[in-house]
Design a protein around this nucleic acid. Structure first.
Length: 457
RNA sequence: GGCCGGGUGGCAGAGUGGUCAUGUAGGGGACUGCAAAUCCCCGUACAGCGGUUCGAUUCCGCUCUCGGCCUCCA
């Protein structure tokens, strides 16, 4: 089955054909490490994790890199505000990011390069651009010469003229052309800086991705991903730098962009007070539920983060794990179901994949036949593996609770009392015990094999 | 102002030129001591106006409207 991906470059779905099927390369723009990851940061991490998982089922080697941008004015500001060295902010934020993203079931990446580890490569890259006549030094800066690249702005659809016409900021005097952008800029002694042919300075925003892609993946990669807000200027500028440095070789064949997150219908912003960090949300809801929310809309669509949506995600996982609990004793080898694979192969249609998973769950709930239970459980777990879901013990999900909740032992004791009461057909006592447990957030289910319990999500 | 992308049932959210999304909420039924869970059934959703077509929610145009980017941003 072909894998179709929507290529932002052509604005069409295209069949994915890697340049070298033996070595598929993927790069996704990572965070600038100055503050806790917010839920919007988590969307590309989770979405491209699903792509990574899907690619791994189809190709023997997938090399996936995502950067940490650890040189940036926002970092400088954050460090100054806290009165700590920049390295403290970046090291701490990177650690938090890794923890938060791992909690969301994102597979670890082998390549997570940092800008500060690639300064020589960046300087070399800039020197190449100057030598090729695509960049120039001026007033301690090095700028990319936009008019030297006729196809500049193709990804975003912006022409250089439109950019200049729509410019809302004053043009720096050292720029030859108003559209030129910074590759290298001077640093004052109090700011991080490195010696360079143009004096002590630091890299501009876009150059690090071009340099690190070249260093780790090569001149041309298969897939480049990131948030849609990066299309312009970041990705257009990456394309400009890399294409010009590499004699016209494209930077990436396929460009994928995820849509932006909103919160309760509003733009997420610190000033509105609706700025959720992943950490905050992990305290309020199970990580797996956050992941389901992030996959419940197609990655290119905007996603409205709502409390209702989060509760629905918890409900969906309850349904999945309830079905898996019923077949907990059956051992299977996970197998990717065709319906889910087909959904994901159609430009990562995760809502459709989730619908297909619901259909499998309905099927397993309906059947008593052992052979069907085996097949369906294998497929449900296989779907879960592709989506990064359903990898925990059903009881772990269904009985997870907060620290102040009733302990499992206490619940089991009450359950034993109730079973005795029911045996004696003392339903008044049995119902009173059940009501007590419901009040404590415990839901009971009397089945033919005994009574099961779970915590209300 | 420029460049993009949307408007689907109470809500969330796929998709399609002509019988079905799916989930959730709601109504009914089966099962249950009663529940819970599960299963079954139900409600004539495609912003508006034109056009193409035997037929459009799906294609084209216009209008209205929402959002992203153009400035740090996933």
């Amino acid at each position: 089955m072909d894998l179709l991906l929507h290529n932002s470059l052509t604005r069409h779905k295209e069949v994915f054909t890697p340049a070298d099927p033996a070595r598929v390369t993927l790069y996704v723009c990572g965070p600038t490490v100055y503050d806790r990851a917010h839920i919007g940061n988590a969307r590309p991490a989770v979405v491209f994790d699903v792509l990574y998982r899907l690619l791994q089922t189809r190709y023997p080697q997938v090399i996936y890199a995502s950067n940490f941008t650890d040189v940036d004015d926002k970092i400088n500001a954050a460090a100054a505000a806290r009165g700590v060295p920049i390295g403290v902010v970046t090291a701490e934020t990177e650690k938090f990011y890794r923890e938060d993203i791992a909690a969301l079931g994102v597979l670890p990446l082998a390549l997570q390069p940092r800008v500060t580890d690639h300064i020589p490569e960046i300087i070399a890259f800039i020197e190449t651009l100057i030598a090729q006549g695509h960049a120039y030094a001026a007033d301690g800066h090095v700028l990319f010469d936009v008019p030297s690249m006729p196809t500049y702005g193709r990804l975003s659809g912006h022409s250089r003229d439109e950019l200049i016409a729509g410019a809302r900021v004053d043009v720096a005097p050292y720029k030859r052309d108003p559209a030129d952008f910074v590759l290298w800029k001077p640093s004052t002694p109090d700011l991080p800086g490195w010696d360079s042919p143009w004096g002590r300075g630091r890299p501009g925003w876009h150059i690090e991705c071009s340099a690190m892609i070249k260093a780790h993946l090569g001149e041309t990669i298969d897939i480049h991903g990131g948030g849609s807000d990066l299309i312009f200027p970041h990705h257009d500028n990456e394309i400009a730098q890399s294409t010009c440095a590499h004699h016209g070789a494209p930077l990436a064949h396929y460009w994928l962009h995820n849509g932006m997150l909103r919160v309760e219908g509003e733009k997420m912003s610190k000033s509105l007070g609706n700025f959720f960090t992943v950490r905050d949300l992990l305290h309020r809801a199970p990580a797996e539920a956050l992941r389901v929310v992030l996959l419940s809309a197609h990655y290119r669509q905007p996603l409205d983060w709502t409390e209702k949506g989060l509760q629905e995600a918890i409900g969906a996982l309850d349904r999945f794990y309830l079905a898996l609990r019923r077949v907990a004793d059956i051992m299977v080898d996970p197998q990717e179901p065709k319906t889910v694979v087909a959904a994901l192969c159609d430009d990562l249609n995760t809502p459709l994949a989730l619908a297909a998973l619901h259909a499998l769950v309905t099927e397993i709930n309906k059947t008593e036949k052992f052979e069907e239970l085996v097949t369906l459980k294998a497929e449900i777990l296989g779907a879960g593996h592709l989506l990064g879901l359903l990898q925990q013990n059903p009881e772990a999900w269904l009985q997870q609770g907060g620290v102040n909740d009733l302990s499992a032992d206490a619940i089991e004791a009450k359950l034993a009392d109730r079973i005795a009461a029911r045996k004696a057909r003392d339903f008044a006592t049995a119902d009173r015990i059940r009501d007590d447990l419901i009040a404590a957030g415990i839901i009971l289910e009397d089945g033919i094999g005994g009574t099961e319990w779970r915590r209300k999500g």
